[in-house]
């Protein structure tokens, strides 16, 4: 069997990459392996848990099922692209630290990306809207009540 690699352009955190990949490859594997991004995590591969979330044109999407060839015209942002150039954290990242809104932290990537997308489109989101935005993100340590507090704290600091 022949390799089916093609050359693709990808824009991640404002940088352009030219990659030689199998176009079917889910974006997650390209980000983690070709671009050595640690943020998006493999959790289920079925789009059920949210650990692999990235921003695609400011929308939080799961990268585990999305073929890389489908996102060549999109602006992709990963969690390491959220901080400012000087290294200062995005208010959501800072709020997760302030509230210590994690235990094992494996789901934190998805929780933060979903929260960033929410507050970008709806900065005054209420309780139920926040919950709805995070509904696809699973956490097994049970830190969700802290995450809800962190999102509300970030909302205040972003006012």
């Amino acid at each position: 069997m022949q390799s089916s690699k093609t050359s693709l352009q990808l824009s991640v955190n404002g940088q352009q990459y030219t990659l030689d990949v199998d176009p079917e490859t889910p974006l997650l594997y390209v980000l983690r392996n070709q671009l050595q991004k640690n943020g998006p995590k493999y959790g289920c591969g079925y789009g059920q848990c949210g650990a692999c979330m990235v921003l695609l044109d400011n929308q939080a999407v799961m990268s585990c099922l999305l073929p890389v060839s489908a996102v060549t015209d999109k602006e992709i942002v990963t969690i390491d692209g959220l901080a400012a150039i000087d290294g200062s954290l995005h208010p959501i990242q800072q709020a997760f630290i302030d509230e210590q809104a994690a235990q094992c932290g494996y789901c934190t990537n998805g929780m933060i990306m979903a929260s960033v997308a929410l507050l970008t489109r709806s900065k005054d989101a209420g309780e139920e809207e926040i919950r709805q935005a995070l509904q696809t993100n699973l956490c097994r340590c049970g830190t969700q009540s802290r995450v809800l507090r962190a999102v509300k704290q970030a909302q205040e600091s972003m006012q």
Partner: peptide
């Protein structure tokens, strides 16, 4: 006291923290 966990900043920055991140 409520001292914060040393790994959390690395986690929110997307640094390599987990065995899954080892290359």
């Amino acid at each position: 006291s409520p001292v914060p966990h040393p790994d959390l900043e690395k986690i929110v920055r997307g640094d390599a923290v987990y065995i899954q991140d080892m290359r």
